[in-house]
Amino acid sequence: MTPEARPRDLILEATGLSFTYPPSAKGPGQKALEGITLGVERGTIFGIIGPSRSGKSTFLRLINRLQEVTAPGQVEGSLRFEGKEIFDPGRDPYQLRREVGFCFDKPQALDLSIADNVTFGPRLAGVTSRGELDAIVEETLRAANLWDEVKDRLSLNANRLSGGQKQRLALARTLALRPKLLLLDEPCSALDPISTARIEEALVAMKHRTTCILVTNNTKQAARLADRTAFFLMAKLVEEGPTQQVFTNPVDDRTDDYISGRFG
C-alpha cells in the first residue's frame, strides 16, 4: 500500500493561506504567502525548500503565531492544527506555542545554566517539582543528542557551549514542553557538518513522537530527512509531494531548476 492510498492523519492543514505584511511608510504591504494549500501528516518530517524570501519562514511563523509578535500582517484562508483553526480569535496563542515548538536558525542560548535553559518553558508553564524538572532535562537532552557532552556540567552557563551544542540545547529546550509539532527554521544553517549530523539523527529518531516541519536552504538535507517536500517560490507553493518524487521526477520545471542548482 502506498502512502497515498491510506487516509492521511493530518496534524496541520493549510487551505488557501495568504499573508500580507503590514503596509509601511515605503508603500503597501508585501505579499509573503499566496494561496498555500498543503497538509502535514502526523509522525513525519515535512521539508520545505526554496530560495530566500520565498515565504518559507513566514509560513512557519504563522503556525505558532510568532509572526504576529514581530510584524502582524493580514492573514487570509485557513490554517488548522489538529483540526482547529489557528487564527480563531478565541484561541490562546501561549498554549498553542507550547504545543507547537520552534527552533531558530541561529543558536540562541538564554543567559542561564544549561539545565535552566531546558526547563525554561516548563517552569513558566507551572512545573515546580525538582524531580520532574530533572527528568525533563535528562530526557530532552538525550533526545537532542547532547546529554553525554553536558551531563557533568548542567549548571554551567549555556553561553559557554559551542554553536553546535547551543543549537542542540535549543532543540532540547523546545522539546521540554513536549510539543506535538516542531517547526525548524533552517536549524543547521549556522552549523558545521558534524553538528548538523547530530541534529539530523535526533530529528529522525523522534519523528514518530514529534512531527517536524523542516525549512531548509540545504536541499540535500531535505532529501535526506523529509518524507514529503514542498517547494516554495516567490510566496507560492510550486510543488509538494513525496520527497523521492520531488527530487527525482518533479512535475514543475522550476522545481527541477532549483534542485539541480540552476538558481537559488
Partner: peptide, 13 residues
Amino acid sequence: PAVLRQVGFSLGA
C-alpha cells in the same frame, strides 16, 4: 537581541 525575546514567546511566555 530581538530574537531572544522571540525565543521566549516561542516557549509560551
